[in-house]
Simulated assay, not measured.
Amino acid sequence: MHVLILGAGFSGKAIAKAFLPLARSVVGTTRSAAKLAAIEAAGIDALVYDGVTISPELAAVMQRTTHLIQSIAPGRDGDPMMRPDAAPLQDLMPNLKWAGYLSTVGVYGDHGGAWVTEDASLEPVSARSVERVAAEKDWLAVGRGNHIPVAVLRLSGIYGPGRNAFCNIAAGTARRLIKPNQVFNRIRVEDIAGAALFLSERSMGGVFNVTDHEPAPPQDVVLEASRLMGVSPPPEIPFETAELSPMARSFYGENKRVSNARLRDSGYVFLFPDYRISLADLWGNDSWRG
């Protein structure tokens, strides 16, 4: 198994670590040469890829790649591997056996707090989610055309060691915004990695919601983290009066409960099925700082 992670950021590095014990090679890319050392420190070979120019070194890696994770956001010009001027995937990666595309539950848009499955209508609100819908379709079509299983992993709010409510409380940036009936799903980064490995080992393609079991109000997560830390929680702030960036406000414009039943029914067992179990783990083993 030769694994290539296009975009070895927070999730990509976790996925690479999950594949390391089984793979003959694992390579991750980053846009910045300054980030190469951080990827290599995790035991992952690293290359620079700006989403446009494929270096000779990266081209050689692509030629041997058998398992691919695409974690680079598409942007206005579309997915970097699917643009009209991009070389055909089968030419770049002739040995490819499975691909995973990291998407977002943002593709569903707002469903008024209702439960959504992978078969729900896609009603993306933000431009970034509209771009993800197009990229998903492209990847699934290329998979069908080349008889390669492509798994689209729709991720909810990502957190884990070094990126969590404890970090926000410690930094003094945590807030308890109150918007009645608002809920979000979230996912621990290790479960993203576990799900990717699970699907790849079984050559499974299709669309999967990779999210925890319990959609919950965001203020409840902050309250639980504060309890575990033994500190007073930040005060409640009505959503209507809160100062938020346009991006942050757009997140609160989408309200849904995302089901992970398809992934669970396929046999994947979540390491951290809800935020309480996950926060207790991060605090209990002192891994929350990263």
Results as ranks from 00 to 15, higher is better:
V3F: 04
G7E: 05
G9E: 10
I15A: 13
A16H: 07
A16F: 11
K17I: 15
L20G: 05
L22F: 10
L22W: 06
V27F: 02
T30S: 05
R31A: 09
S32T: 10
A33W: 01
A34F: 11
K35D: 01
L36W: 04
A42K: 02
A46P: 05
L47F: 07
Y49W: 15
S55G: 02
P56F: 02
L58C: 07
A59Q: 13
A60S: 15
Q63C: 06
H67R: 06
H67P: 02
I69V: 12
S71F: 06
P74V: 04
P74F: 08
D77T: 10
P80A: 03
M82T: 08
P84N: 04
D85S: 09
D85H: 03
A86S: 09
A87F: 00
L89H: 03
P94K: 03
L102E: 00
L102P: 03
T104H: 05
V105C: 04
D110A: 10
D110V: 05
G112I: 05
T117P: 07
A120C: 15
S121G: 11
L122N: 05
P124T: 15
A127V: 08
S129R: 02
E131D: 11
E131S: 08
A134W: 02
E136S: 03
K137R: 13
W139I: 04
V142L: 06
G143W: 06
R144I: 14
G145N: 13
I148T: 14
V150C: 06
L153A: 11
Y159N: 02
G160H: 01
R163V: 01
N164V: 06
A165K: 01
I169N: 09
A170E: 13
P180G: 13
N181Q: 15
V183N: 10
F184E: 13
F184H: 08
N185L: 11
R186M: 08
D191E: 09
D191T: 13
A193Y: 02
F198Y: 14
F198M: 13
S200L: 07
M204W: 09
M204H: 07
G205I: 13
G206I: 12
V207R: 12
N209A: 12
D212W: 12
E214Q: 11
E214A: 14
E214F: 12
P215F: 03
P215Y: 06
P218S: 09
V221D: 04
V221K: 03
L223S: 13
E224P: 00
E224I: 04
E224N: 04
A225W: 00
L228A: 02
L228C: 03
M229V: 12
V231S: 07
I237M: 15
E240M: 10
E243H: 11
L244Y: 08
S245G: 15
P246D: 03
A248N: 11
A248W: 06
R249S: 01
F251E: 03
F251C: 09
Y252Q: 12
K256G: 02
R257S: 12
R257T: 02
N260R: 01
L263S: 08
R264Q: 14
R264S: 12
D265W: 10
S266G: 13
V269L: 12
V269F: 11
L271S: 13
D274R: 10
Y275N: 08
S278F: 03
L279G: 07
A280I: 06
A280Y: 07
W283S: 10
G290R: 01
